[in-house]
């Protein structure tokens, strides 16, 4: 197993937000996680990223415990719900941010960034500042900036939540292509059932701090507590 989360727990004051979280994920797989607002999804991602300290439990990445490591030492990238770009840097420099931290030679940085700009269909946008880009373009720059650092694990917190339906669909396809091209292992939080089924190799459902990861997509669809059956019934009733 590439990612192992064991007994992870977190409380804020008296409220237990994440309860005994236990799951695993293979390398180069995406685990889609569904759940209502406030059920502990974001706290779970932040604990795995090292941005929130868990009360108990541990996180292992490729067999190595990373629970006590600082966020910058984990090689895990957490992507916010919004397309949060550095406002003082253009699209190229935003993508190159992680590479510049590693002090790579300029030629190498240019080569890597140009390559990813093509993958993200962002040709001609490299010199634009974040406020000159559309929502979808900003989200793609945000992806590029994360992927280029070759993270061991990518944590995405409702990344397409703020996009319109058309852009969202294009971004879902792009994300699927990128995960294959760059062999990405990721946890993908979403509120959208269709998106979860489309993007995830495995599906998890979080409720009141507890995460249930399903064996396969059919097990998820057949579970009456997830709301999938209600959704199917709704669409069938329209016929």
């Amino acid at each position: 197993m590439f990612l192992e989360v064991r007994n992870l727990t977190k409380s804020f004051k008296k409220e237990q937000v994440v309860k005994n979280l236990d799951f695993t994920l293979d390398a180069h797989q995406t685990l889609s996680i569904l759940g209502k607002s406030g059920c502990g999804k974001t706290t779970m991602l932040k604990m795995i990223a090292g941005l929130v300290k868990p009360d108990n439990g541990e996180v292992l990445l490729a067999g190595e415990a990373v629970t006590l490591k600082k966020p910058e030492k984990r090689n895990i990238v957490y992507l916010y719900q919004e397309d949060l770009l550095f406002p003082h840097l253009n699209a190229f420099e935003n993508i190159a941010f992680g590479l510049r931290l590693k002090k790579l030679p300029q030629a190498k940085i240019t080569e890597e960034v140009d390559k990813i700009i093509v993958s993200l269909e962002l040709e001609g946008q490299a010199t634009k500042m974040p406020n000159q880009l559309s929502g979808g373009q900003r989200q793609r720059v945000s992806f590029g900036r994360a992927i280029i650092t070759n993270p061991s694990l990518l944590l995405l917190d409702e990344p397409f939540g703020s996009l319109d339906a058309g852009t969202r669909k294009r971004m879902q396809t792009l994300f699927q292509n990128l995960t294959k091209t760059y062999n990405i292992t990721s946890l993908f939080i979403t509120h959208d059932l269709k998106e979860a089924l489309l993007i995830g190799d495995k599906i998890g459902f979080m409720k009141a701090g507890n995460l249930k990861v399903y064996e396969d997509k059919n097990a998820f669809i057949n579970d009456t507590t997830t709301g999938v059956q209600e959704e199917i019934n709704f669409w069938e009733s329209l016929n």
Binding site: P71, E72, Y78, L84, T149
Partner: peptide, 10 residues
Amino acid sequence: ELSILAQALG
């Protein structure tokens, strides 16, 4: 948030 993001990027 940008600082946290920068940390996550290394």
